[in-house]
Design a binder for these strands. Structure first.
Length: 463
RNA sequence: GGCCCCAUCGUCUAGCGGUCCAGGACGUCGGCCUCUCACGCCGAAAACAGGGGUUCGAGUCCCCUUGGGGUCACCA
């Protein structure tokens, strides 16, 4: 068995959205699972729409998702010579002919067919015509008129197309530049692609391409056409992978989610990168198309967040803290412990950042909204906080057990339940009525900040 | 419209003729836990699109209908 070679071939005309990422991922997983090679080809022949920025963005997004390719990316625009040579060969083999029909003529024929409720197929009227020197023409590929072309698709099964239904397609423009269905074949063959895994929107192109492979005497790859993702709205389509990064998603979660869209492995839901590589099989890809459910992706993000060690979280969340107005170095000694106090709960890095932000703002900058103060810092609450501060003052070694014991002793002495003081204290620490557990908060905060925040809240001018 | 593909809870899916009065997950709704919000745990509601066949037996095979999607370029 020769090792398999697959490719992802985006055209750099926009961002990499979830659908494209999934196509890339399935190719990547197939290659890794089989010990083959994953290649990248940038289909940038449409000069009007292709941009370098887009190419860079796609490469950045793939990299962020953790997909690496095994050879230098191929730029289709740099392969014109090869395309030309292949076209020359078809010309000399007489597999193509010049078509002098004007766009107007074709349009008219198309309309007539539509009026008569027939399918429009180019009728081959120019095939065999004598040369008309100087007249503009396009090259058409002569399709077989009889028999059928069978695609033995890895995911769609056998798809049979009668050759009579495949028209003689144009493979080169009047300016001589070759067209997609021709170029893909040449490029895939040159790159030694053994498995073409792409979106199902290419399924009807496949029989045409197979005929071109044959005309060129090239070995045919296996094909696998992935079901399309439903509900990819214009909005979602324009949302690149980088927007998920900005929303605080982990690449593992995005991969996990898009992999499970159309592919499954029994009842399993949560997969790490290595799980996916180990368990992915193209045979397990579904034929039916699925719709996006971003809530599930959020949940998966939470699952992967929970699996991430605090140190990893610390470096990931640092930029989000900065974005939230608190510049914290990813190596800050309290960052990892801070993450640990909220790791189980956050659904995204953005959420995590807002939830641990309070640890890193200056003690005097803790803002307590007036309604929160009215609820939790009213009546005896302030006096109690002052008392708690006093009790905590005496704690020698600032560790959970000691802090907890001191707090409990204080409560007992005052005849209070922890409940009666916890919320006020939390407000003092965080400025909010929600947050991590009380004792872990104090530990991460440290003795000095803990006391400072208690005293400050006790002395605040709120009701 | 022609051709092609698809069809299990709201969504993602398991199911590859009997083990399915259909299982898991997200979400939803209850409850428990509890210093808050969460997390976690327990439980509930929720589906084989419809109709014909084939078979002793069909969610699973076949056909039709309906519905959804794709594709019909001198784009990729």
């Amino acid at each position: 068995m020769t090792p398999i070679r697959v490719r992802f071939a985006p055209s750099p005309t926009g961002v990499l959205h979830l659908g494209g990422a999934r196509t890339a991922l399935f190719n990547y997983l197939l290659a890794r699972h089989e010990g083959g090679r994953f290649l990248l080809r940038i289909e940038d022949t449409d000069k009007e729409r292709s941009t370098d920025e887009s190419t860079r963005a796609i490469i950045d997004d793939l990299t962020w998702l953790g997909m690496s390719w095994d050879e230098e990316p191929v730029f289709q625009s740099k392969r014109i010579e090869r395309h030309r040579a292949a076209l020359d060969r078809l010309v000399s083999d007489r597999r193509v002919y010049k078509c002098y029909c004007t766009p107007e003529e074709r349009e008219e024929a198309r309309k007539r067919a539509e009026a008569e409720k027939r399918t429009y197929l180019y009728d081959g009227r120019c095939d065999g015509l004598p040369d008309r020197p100087g007249a503009p023409f396009v090259w058409r590929f002569r399709m077989p008129k009889e028999g059928e072309t069978v695609v033995d698709d890895l995911v769609q099964g056998q798809v049979v197309t009668p050759n009579a239904e495949i028209e003689d397609l144009v493979i080169a423009r009047s300016d001589g530049s070759p067209l997609y269905n021709f170029v893909v074949v040449v490029d895939d063959a040159d790159m030694g692609i053994t498995h073409v895994i792409r979106g199902k929107d290419h399924l009807t192109n496949t029989p045409k391409q197979i005929q071109i492979y044959r005309a060129l005497g090239l070995p045919e790859p296996r094909f696998g056409h992935l079901p399309l993702i439903l509900g990819l709205s214009k909005r979602l389509r324009s949302a690149g992978i980088s927007s998920y990064k900005e929303q605080g998603y982990l690449p593992e979660a995005v991969n996990n989610y898009i992999a499970r869209l159309g592919w499954s492995h029994g009842d399993e839901e949560v997969f790490t990168h290595d799980d996916l590589v180990a368990k992915f099989r193209i045979e397990d890809v579904n034929r039916s198309e699925g719709a996006l459910n971003l809530e599930k992706m959020e949940w998966l993000n939470q699952q992967h967040l929970q699996m991430s060690p605090p140190e990893k979280l610390a470096s990931l969340v640092a930029p989000f803290l900065s974005a939230a107005g608190v510049a914290v170095d990813s190596a800050h000694p309290r960052l990892a412990p801070a993450c640990e106090t909220r790791r189980q709960k956050a659904r995204s890095l953005v959420e995590l950042a807002t939830e641990i932000r309070f640890y890193f703002v200056p003690d005097e900058a803790i803002a307590i909204a007036s309604d929160v103060a009215a609820k939790h810092l009213a009546g005896e609450a302030k006096a109690r906080l002052l008392g708690l501060a006093g009790a905590l003052e005496a704690v020698g070694t600032w560790e959970t057990a000691a802090v907890e014991a001191a707090t409990n002793r204080f409560c007992e002495a005052k005849g209070l339940k922890l409940k009666e003081i916890a919320q006020s204290a939390r407000v003092a620490f965080t400025g909010s009525a929600t947050g991590p557990g009380l004792f872990e908060t104090m530990i991460v905060l440290g003795k000095r900040s803990t006391l400072a925040r208690l005293k400050r809240a006790a002395g605040s001018s709120a009701p």
